[in-house]
Simulated scan of single mutants.
Amino acid sequence: MIIVLCAAAAAAGWIDAVVGGGGLLLLPALLLGLPHAQPPAVLGTNKAVAIVGTAGAAVTYARKAPVDVKLAVRIGLAALAGAVGGAALAGGISKDAMRPLIMGVLVVVAAVVIFKPGFGAASSAAPVSRQRVLLTIALAGLGIGLYDGLIGPGTGTFLVLALTALLHLDLVTASATAKIVNCCTNAGALAMFAYQGMVFWQLAALMAVFNLAGGMIGARMALKKGSGFVRGVLLTVVGALVVKLGLEQWG
């Protein structure tokens, strides 16, 4: 089981680095491998593993991709605040009612990516206005952070899509920016889980090594192969998200 968990950590790191959504693989693997653990301990261990791979991918991207680190951190802090608010509201909102809406958004997103080949193919040369930056902080930061606290799956993928659409980034730069945002949100969540004693540190440390390797390989492949490669992985992850949410809703 440890071998399976380490393999899942490596694959999740690769997916997360390219386009987000590594939690679709890592969290179910941990639930399978730790069947008797408390859910918060599984979530805490997941964050302890994921933050290492995310940080490694972020550093790899930042060295070669034109990332606005200051803006990414501002979005990340807004996302952290949104996630805290989402977690606080989670008990009072029906996730069953929200899943069809999220699935509908994902289907629309997939259609846009499929039928608009130029989506995320290249960054816009035009400067981004202050109003658009504030809109991005509100929607990609607070909004997606809120979703992360309420439901969670696919947060990284939603970030990539939002950053591409709002800031007119290419998919590679959007993935790089999303990794920095994810580092902020993961750090906040991990701090809370660690404070509560809900992290299996020894297992997390072992899996984090593989997650880091997968993340750095994924980031390098995305940088080398470009937006077309990221687009293909994006469609695969969006499809997986739709299936996962559908099974949770009607399975």
Rank of each mutant, 00 (worst) to 15 (best):
I3W: 13
A7S: 13
A7E: 11
A11R: 13
G13D: 02
W14V: 14
A17M: 07
G20L: 05
L27V: 11
L27E: 14
P35A: 07
P35W: 08
Q38Y: 14
Q38D: 15
N46R: 13
G53R: 00
T54S: 07
A55S: 02
A58Y: 03
V59I: 14
R63D: 00
P66N: 11
D68S: 05
V69F: 09
A72E: 07
R74P: 05
G76T: 13
A78Y: 04
A79H: 13
G85I: 09
G92A: 15
S94F: 00
D96V: 04
M98V: 11
L101Q: 11
I102C: 00
I102A: 07
I102N: 05
V105A: 07
V107D: 05
V107P: 05
V109W: 11
V112F: 12
F119C: 09
F119M: 00
F119Y: 02
G120R: 04
A121K: 15
A121M: 10
S123I: 12
S123V: 10
S124V: 07
S124F: 08
A126I: 06
P127F: 01
S129L: 04
Q131G: 12
Q131A: 12
A140D: 11
G145P: 00
D148F: 15
L150V: 10
G152Y: 03
G156I: 08
G156V: 02
T157N: 05
V160K: 06
T164P: 05
L167S: 07
H168I: 10
H168W: 10
T173Q: 13
A176P: 04
K179V: 03
V181I: 02
T185V: 01
A187I: 06
G188T: 01
A189R: 09
A189G: 15
L190R: 07
A191P: 13
A191S: 06
M192V: 10
F193C: 00
M198W: 11
W201K: 03
Q202G: 04
A205H: 09
M207P: 01
M207Y: 01
V209N: 02
G215W: 05
M216G: 08
G218R: 10
G218L: 07
R220M: 11
K224I: 10
G226N: 00
G228Y: 02
R231Y: 09
R231S: 05
G232M: 02
L235N: 11
T236E: 08
V237A: 03
V237T: 03
V237D: 00
L241M: 01
L241N: 11
V243N: 03
G246K: 09
L247M: 04
E248P: 04
Q249T: 09
Q249C: 01
